[in-house]
Amino acid sequence: METRINAFEKGKKAMGALFTLSGYLKKSAIERELLELVDFRVSQINGCAYCLDMHSKELRAIGETEQRLYGLSAWRECPYYSARERAALEWAEALTKVQVTDEIYRIAKEQFSDEELVDLTLGVTTINTWNRFNLAFENTPGTYQIGAFG
């Protein structure tokens, strides 16, 4: 198998732009725990092992339970996600699959202010971009250390 380029070394400008977006999101109107949960779910959908490793470790470090992590792919059937989390997960899945409906928007607007929904949308599009970079270029799932990216 041909070794893929390391985007962190060869694409420093592009990576810098993504880190800037991620930095903004850390200070956004959306709570960290919810953004991490959304990042984990979107990474499940996209099959990004590196991001699954990263976000599962970050979630556990901030107190997320194993039960909620294991149940996330079937969140609609699980009673232990809040209405706000459910709205965020529905929004994240719809954006990732490019299938946002008026009903999904209505559900999201019941839980999020305009500013929060814009920040949540930026979060979803950002993790989708990270997933695609990690799927396209060199990375090693399992090597992420908690807090490595701030």
Score class of each variant (00 low, 15 high):
M1Q: 08
E2M: 08
T3S: 13
R4S: 13
I5S: 11
A7K: 06
A7I: 14
A7C: 06
A7F: 15
A7G: 02
F8C: 01
E9R: 12
K10S: 14
G11Q: 11
K12S: 14
K12G: 09
K13I: 10
G16C: 02
G16V: 02
A17T: 10
A17F: 06
L18R: 05
T20L: 07
G23H: 14
G23K: 10
Y24L: 02
L25T: 09
K26I: 03
K27I: 05
S28T: 04
S28W: 10
S28A: 08
A29D: 12
E31A: 08
E31H: 09
E31Q: 12
E33H: 09
E36Y: 14
E36C: 06
L37P: 04
L37N: 03
D39C: 14
D39A: 12
D39F: 15
D39Y: 15
F40Q: 11
R41C: 00
S43Q: 03
N46S: 12
G47M: 09
Y50Q: 03
Y50A: 01
Y50K: 07
L52A: 06
L52D: 02
D53R: 04
D53P: 09
H55T: 07
K57I: 06
L59E: 05
L59N: 14
L59W: 04
A61E: 13
A61Q: 12
I62P: 10
E64K: 12
E66P: 02
Y70M: 15
Y70D: 15
G71T: 11
S73D: 03
S73R: 10
W75D: 07
E77D: 14
E77P: 03
C78I: 11
C78E: 13
P79A: 05
P79I: 00
P79G: 05
Y80W: 00
Y80I: 01
Y81T: 02
S82Y: 02
R84S: 03
R84M: 07
R86L: 06
R86M: 03
A87I: 05
A88M: 03
E90G: 07
W91E: 00
A92N: 08
E93V: 09
A94V: 04
T96L: 10
K97I: 12
V100F: 04
V100S: 08
D102M: 07
I104Y: 05
Y105V: 03
R106T: 04
I107P: 02
I107N: 12
A108M: 08
A108L: 09
E110K: 13
E110V: 04
S113F: 15
D114M: 09
D114F: 11
E116S: 12
D119Y: 12
D119L: 10
L120H: 11
T121P: 03
T121H: 09
G123W: 06
V124E: 03
V124W: 01
T125V: 15
I127T: 12
N128P: 00
T129V: 11
W130P: 11
F133K: 02
E138K: 14
N139E: 08
T140G: 03
Y144C: 07
Y144N: 06
I146F: 11
I146C: 10
A148T: 06
A148R: 13
F149A: 12
F149T: 13
F149P: 02
